[in-house]
């Protein structure tokens, strides 16, 4: 019992390590009618689910925070500040950034 649990944990570690190596996290954003739409995805096209997204102003003030949904999307009303830096964090050291001008 103990051994099989250990084995399972080991297998999980291998799996996660592989994922961490192979998948880069990306965030893309565009503006449509004063709404900023964000899409967060891994290189192979899988959505980043439940990723933490932070929106910073040019002087690095945190303006907003949100979470990507099941499709990797999150949207918010366009703030007055320009440009914006969007940062996605998805655990395991996964981090992506996007400059929205």
């Amino acid at each position: 019992m103990k051994f099989s649990t250990l084995l399972l944990a080991f297998a999980a570690c291998l799996l996660l390590a592989g994922t961490a190596m192979a998948h880069k996290v990306n965030i893309f954003a565009f503006v449509d009618e004063a709404v900023v739409y964000t899409e967060s995805y891994f290189a192979d096209g899988k959505p980043v689910i439940g990723g933490k997204i932070s929106v910073f102003s040019a002087d690095k003030r945190l303006l907003l925070e949100g979470k990507s949904d099941q499709q990797g999307n999150w949207q918010f009303s366009q703030p007055a500040e320009k440009p914006l830096t969007l940062v996605i964090e998805a655990g395991l050291g996964h981090r992506g950034e996007f400059q929205l001008k």
């Binding site: 880069k24 990306n26 995805y41 290189a43 192979d44 096209g45 992506g96």
Partner: peptide, 10 residues
Amino acid sequence: VTVAAMGLED
């Protein structure tokens, strides 16, 4: 020819 854009390699 294929051009890759913004990290989405599909």
